[in-house]
């Protein structure tokens, strides 16, 4: 599984982005998107399109965790969204599949409900929710910085390290 995580401000500017791969089941933590080099801008594009869906869904449920809200079939990408109280959105694009060479040998050992294989299983949903909740805590701490204003880019390497740790832990 490969992930692209981005924090979007209420005015739709990206505040933080982070690309990573799964660390579970022997994953290296590196992202391997099936659309290769073009994923760098395609992922941004897909997420930007999913913001429209997030704005529709946000008034239907008071929960912060909005689950998988969008799907981009050509690259088999799923987009999950977590909405904070101040309408800052944590968007996570997840794309199943490991590194091409190793994928075949590993498929047989993994059950169909594991995080790496099935992006819509309850286990995946739960893992991403845990990841989001952990990022939310770190993000609230960022907000408590008196010099930080909502909409500013989050530059703190400590924040990045925390997000990376949460990604390794849950995804």
């Amino acid at each position: 599984m490969s992930y692209y995580f981005v924090v979007v401000s209420p005015t739709d500017t990206p505040m933080f982005e982070y690309t990573f791969g799964t660390s579970k089941a022997g994953g290296s933590g590196q992202a391997h998107f099936r659309n290769g080099e073009s994923s760098r801008y395609m992922n941004q594009f897909i997420i930007h399109a999913a913001i429209d869906v997030a704005e529709e869904v946000q008034w239907l449920s008071p929960n912060m965790w909005l689950k998988v809200i969008d799907h981009y079939a050509p690259t088999n990408s799923h987009i999950s969204c977590f909405m904070t109280g101040t309408n800052v959105r944590f968007m996570l694009l997840h794309q199943p599949g490991g590194p091409p060479a190793a994928a075949g040998s590993r498929t047989s050992t993994l059950s169909s409900s594991s995080i790496a294989q099935n992006p819509l299983s309850p286990q995946t949903d739960e893992a991403i929710r845990q990841f989001m909740t952990e990022v939310y805590e770190v993000w609230v701490k960022t907000m408590m910085n008196p010099f930080y204003k909502i909409g500013d880019e989050i530059k703190s390497p400590a924040f990045r390290a925390r997000v990376a740790a949460a990604g390794r832990k849950w995804l």
């Binding site: 946000q58 008071p62 929960n63 912060m64 965790w65 909405m83 904070t84 109280g85 101040t86 845990q130 909740t133 952990e134 939310y136 805590e137 993000w139 609230v140 907000m143 408590m144 909502i150």
Partner: peptide, 27 residues
Amino acid sequence: MKLLDLLLYRASPAGSSSSSSTPAARP
């Protein structure tokens, strides 16, 4: 603006220190 998310964070059940708890609902 900043207090809103702090309040929601603190309002979540179980003291919200563990990452297994769900954050409170948005108004």
